[in-house]
Design a protein around this nucleic acid. Structure first.
Length: 1007
RNA sequence: GCUCGGAUGGUGGAAUUGGUAGACACGUUGGACUUAAAAUCCAAUGACCAUUGCGGUCGUGCGGGUUCAAGUCCCGCUCCGAGUACCA
């Protein structure tokens, strides 16, 4: 029987599904001691309308190999899959077509599932999750309620129930408690608290809750009609669609992730993640240690706090700068300066993030007219505003030390503010001195004089603290995350409003399901799409969603109109998989299940989630751990980012007539070689003119060059298609993408095929090479529909089979590296599978024999076991595929058909190419699936060598090799090597100065 | 600007602690089989020189260095990619 991959793959995919081969067991299902658990997870996909391309399964294949390997190694493996099914594209499609996003999503999921099934993954589909399923988002809403019901105890670094905080407030007010809270919260005593009305108490508690409703400055994206979190903005524009983003104050739900900054940072140390990913998160959290310095404002009851990392330069302060958005600005500005300041604030607010970033160079600012007081010298310090100060970092105020900070220096110079120098022997007239090494000595600074930076910092803080003007402070760049989205297709908040204050729906009445709306757009008066729902009010007595016209603000109240962001559902999904479908009603997952599975042992996905999903899910995990819901405080122990698979785009080159000459009726397309050669010629002659009587350069001389002569017939053909004199210059050829499926492995274009599927090419002329072939140009780009370079895994499975696809994706290169997809290489791995097959059977019979294997074959096998096992542990899948190739090549050479070799080989290869492995295993006479057969054990004894082929080097250069016994001593080796005539020839009579002999490695003769 | 990666044949990429650079595969060329093609098999394939054979020189982005020995370690650069960006 020949290797019939189609039949084999269909057969086993069907069998795995029917027998639920890859269903993970819950701990209680074991009789006796449960197997050790191992949890392998992929970042679940958003089911987009475009379907999968070959880049998507890369990570899935890698994790599948690892999951299967772990099953062979005796683990109970949890390897689930699901869908992150809330999201923008389905909603945009709904806006355009009116089709309910749930319907689009369902269709797309079906397509994804079909594509995934064809690749033979060992997913446990019985545990599938979909974030848009009410049974799932019930628990997303539940977690939201828990966050609302919690505050953060800074002293213990732990989230606690809000009822504990209420007790503290009753006893001592909020003056003593170390709780993370909004900066604008005011102090109150126990008496104050007791005197507060119910609503006032609620209002104060919102300042402490881990999710809170507050008027905050948000990133508003008008084009998408929604706010965006910081991680959803790239280079000042929205990550999706690249739309501009402006700053706007809005009442929004926020997540107090900043409370967890320190734990999110220090927790990284214990994670097995790539350094670059940890680095990205570290930068995002942005911890800096310094001091908070308080300045009094002259003739004012207000004061300014500014964060600085250089309290040692406190005597160098010559002005203070506030962000234009700073609350104090309007309060302290003097009447004389008011107009100028107001204008500046208006202008600054109008500028989008992008504009502000675009001209970092220009220095702008305005003097407020007010003066602060230096805390140590009591000298007046002018207060300025400037948009180089960000409202969102620190306190939105900078104590400017122009001698020690370049931006302050630039600002001071620009506005002629004095630049006092506090560094001993340093010239700061041209630029600031930013070096922080301890060798620098502080000067002109009273009690700090002569101290190094490191000694001066604590001393300065101490002096400031003594007079109540400062304290040590750690500042984080990480901001609280905006959690509201003005969209339809997301989780509804389980929130209704009484007197404008948010109330949670009781847990037992969840889920609060998305209402129907007739359109998915915002309402005419700018409310989110849920504002269009007619049934969107909460009846607090019946505990039901009821019609809006029943709202009486007595027992029936309006519901929240925003929905949750995409990262809500993905922040905890890993724990949902731990529970089986029919046990999911009462909890996220049972305590036994959570305890047994713990967290994800191996997580594979794209690096684009470094600061979004991966940070938020760490936050939620820590929170749920604090509140006793989860037994772990990190979600993902080991994480690998798979590299992107790039597409190899194909180009034809359209001749573009220029200057009104040579107008062309139908497009003319030329080949890569032609364009490349002509461009080379153009680098010499600038312009080329084709006329009736020949080809000329710009001075009207006939061009006689190799290239022109070679292509003269093509040039004349182009001429004949045009209408008059033709000019060819550098920019005469536009590269145009053509569909890669119409290009064969030798880069030849199927012109007729192109014309038949793309009408715009129908009338076009394609100028082929002499041999009639049309060769396209190729370039590596990101795989995308618009570049016509997408390769669909279905097509690969059809032509070569899933096992070939799996092997090839791994063979392409290191998992974490970006690499181009080149279809030509597929035949190599496919041939390998055919060769493997032939070891077991030929056309009509099984070749496997029970004869003992040769020593050689055993060596080949064990060499392979050793290398492949090591490679899997190192996630070096590309090298294990070549190891298999070497193994099969050797066994073929040895004509090995011994069962003793072929059985373990089938197991070894089954994680990589599971279909063929199952088929071979069955052919060997086994009735059970190969998936849990114990992994072959490596035995050193088969690799024992008694001789080694030594490279014999002279001055470090290898000249020849010698087979020598490994038992020989250094002296004996020296003896034999020196006697060899080739050695004598190399030495040409010289006596070696030195001989380096490393037994088992190398011989190097110096001299 | 800063941080982190990376640079090896025509191509994708191998190369334990420094120890035979280019494994494996693609592509290309030649050959066998075939009426022919496909498939399969065999051989060659870093560049250059030499060639009857033996062989030699250069070679892992560039310039230095350490070492018996450097793709690998050190110093200085160039280019490419990713992240981040007025962070006080």
């Amino acid at each position: 029987m020949a290797y019939d991959y189609k039949a084999i793959e269909q057969k086993w995919q069907k069998q795995w599904a029917e027998e639920q081969t890859f269903k993970a067991k819950q701990p209680q299902e074991f009789e006796g001691e449960p197997k050790p658990p191992f949890y392998v997870l992929d970042m679940f996909p958003y089911p987009s309308g475009a379907g999968l391309h070959v880049g998507h399964p890369l990570g899935y294949i890698a994790s599948d190999i690892y999951a299967r390997y772990k099953r062979h190694s005796g683990y109970n493996v949890l390897h689930p899959q699901g869908y992150d099914s809330f999201g923008l594209p389905a909603e945009q499609y709904a806006i355009q077509t009116g089709q309910h996003p749930a319907k689009t999503t369902e269709t797309n999921i079906k397509r994804y599932r079909e594509q995934l099934d064809k690749i033979g993954f060992s997913f446990d589909w019985s545990r599938e999750v979909r974030t848009s399923d009410p049974k799932y988002y019930k628990w997303t809403q539940w977690i939201f309620i828990q966050l609302f019901d919690s505050w953060y105890d800074e002293a213990e670094q732990k989230s606690k129930p809000i009822s504990d905080l209420v007790q503290i407030f009753e006893k001592e007010g909020n003056t003593e408690v170390e709780a993370v809270c909004n900066e604008d919260s005011v102090q109150f005593s126990a008496e104050d608290w007791k005197a507060f009305s119910k609503d006032e108490k609620e209002q104060h508690l919102l300042n402490y809750r881990l999710t809170y409703l507050a008027e905050t400055e948000v990133n508003w994206c008008p084009a998408l009609g929604t706010v965006l979190a910081n991680d959803e903005i790239v280079n000042g524009v929205s990550e999706r669609g690249g739309h501009p983003v402006v700053r706007k104050k809005m009442k929004q739900w926020s997540m107090r992730i900043s409370a967890f900054a320190e734990r999110l940072l220090s927790g990284l140390d214990n994670l097995d993640w790539s350094e670059s990913l940890k680095e990205t998160q570290k930068n995002w959290i942005g911890k800096s240690v310094g001091a908070l310095v308080k300045f009094k404002i002259q003739n004012s009851k207000f004061g300014i706090s500014a964060f600085t990392t250089r309290p040692d330069t406190i005597f160098g302060v010559s002005f203070v700068t506030l962000a234009p958005e700073h609350d104090l600005v309007t309060q302290i500005t003097t009447p004389e300066q008011k107009e100028e300041v107001d204008n500046y604030i208006k202008a600054a607010a109008k500028r989008s993030e992008r504009d502000r970033m675009a001209d970092v160079k220009s220095i702008t600012g305005v003097f407020t007219g007010a003066y602060a007081e230096h805390p140590l010298t009591n000298k007046p310090i002018p207060i300025w505003i400037g948009d180089y100060v960000l409202a969102s970092y620190g306190t939105g105020a900078v104590m400017a030390v122009p001698c020690g900070d370049q931006r302050d220096h630039d600002f001071a110079k620009h506005f002629n503010i004095p630049i006092p120098n506090v560094f001993e022997g340093i010239d700061i007239s041209e630029e600031a001195y930013t070096d922080k090494s301890n060798a620098t000595k502080i000067a002109n600074s009273d009690f700090l004089d002569g101290l190094g930076v490191l000694e001066a910092i604590p001393k300065a803080i101490e002096a400031l603290a003594k007079i109540g003007a400062g304290e040590k402070k750690i500042n984080y760049r990480l901001r609280d995350a905006v959690f509201s989205r003005q969209r339809y297709w997301g989780e509804p908040f389980p929130v209704y409003y009484v007197n404008g204050l948010p109330k949670m729906i009781d847990e037992q009445h969840l889920p609060l399901e998305l209402p129907e709306v007739e359109k998915y757009l915002p309402t005419e008066d700018g409310a989110p799409p849920l504002g269009r729902a007619t049934e969107w009010a909460w009846d607090t007595e019946a505990n039901l969603v009821v019609s809006n016209d029943k709202i009486d603000h007595n027992t029936i109240f309006p519901l929240e109109l925003n929905t949750m962001p995409g990262w809500a559902g993905s922040s905890w999904y890993l724990f949902r998989y731990m529970e089986e479908q029919n046990n999911r009603d009462q909890h996220i997952a049972s305590d036994e299940a959570l305890k047994y599975w713990n967290n994800v042992d191996l997580y594979i996905g794209g690096s684009e989630h470094a600061t979004g999903h991966l940070l938020y899910s760490r936050f939620w995990t820590k929170f749920l751990n604090d509140r006793g819901v989860l037994p772990v405080d990190e979600p993902f122990k080991k994480l690998i980012n798979q590299g992107m698979i790039l597409g190899e785009s194909a180009f034809v080159y359209r001749y573009k007539a220029s200057g009104g000459e040579g107008r062309i009726k139908n497009d003319i397309y030329t080949t890569y070689d032609f364009v490349r050669s002509i461009k080379k010629e153009l680098s010499k002659s600038k312009n080329i003119f084709i006329r009736e009587n020949g080809i000329f350069d710009k001075d009207n001389n006939i061009i006689d060059s190799e290239i022109i002569n070679k292509y003269s017939s093509i040039l004349k053909k182009i001429y004949s298609l045009g209408q008059s004199n033709m000019l060819i210059m550098e920019r005469s050829f536009d590269p145009i993408h053509v569909d890669v499926s119409l290009v064969n492995t030798s880069n030849q274009l199927d012109i007729e095929g192109l014309k038949s599927i793309k009408p715009e090419f129908k009338e076009a002329h394609f100028i082929t090479e002499e041999d009639g072939k049309f060769i396209v140009g190729r370039e590596v780009e990101k795989m995308s529909k618009s570049k016509f370079n997408v390769v669909n895994p279905d097509d690969v499975c059809e032509e070569y089979g899933a096992d070939s696809l799996r092997l090839y994706e791994m063979f392409l290169g290191p998992l974490e590296q970006a690499k181009p997809w080149n279809t030509a290489g597929l035949s190599g791995v496919h041939n390998f599978l055919k060769k493997l097959w032939k070891l077991y059977q030929d056309e009509d019979q099984l070749l496997v024999s029970d004869e003992p294997a040769s020593k050689e074959s055993l060596k080949t096998l064990h060499k392979t076991i050793k290398k492949v096992t090591q490679d899997i542990e190192d996630f070096s899948f590309n090298t294990s595929v070549s190891t298999f190739m070497i193994c099969v090549n050797e066994l073929t050479q040895q004509k090995c058909h011994a069962r003793e070799i072929l059985e373990p080989l089938a197991v070894l290869i089954s994680p990589y190419a599971p279909h063929i492995a199952e088929e071979l295993w069955e052919g060997l006479g086994h009735s059970e699936s190969i998936s849990e057969v114990p992994y072959p054990k490596f035995e050193e004894k088969y690799l024992k060598e008694d001789s080694k082929t030594y490279p014999i080097s002279f001055n470090g250069k290898m000249r020849f090799t010698m087979d020598l016994s490994l038992d020989l001593s250094k002296d004996e080796i020296e003896d034999i090597v020196m006697k060899d005539e080739r050695t004598q020839k190399q030495l040409e009579g010289r006596t070696p100065k030195k001989m380096i002999i490393v037994p088992g490695k190398i011989v190097n003769i110096v001299g």
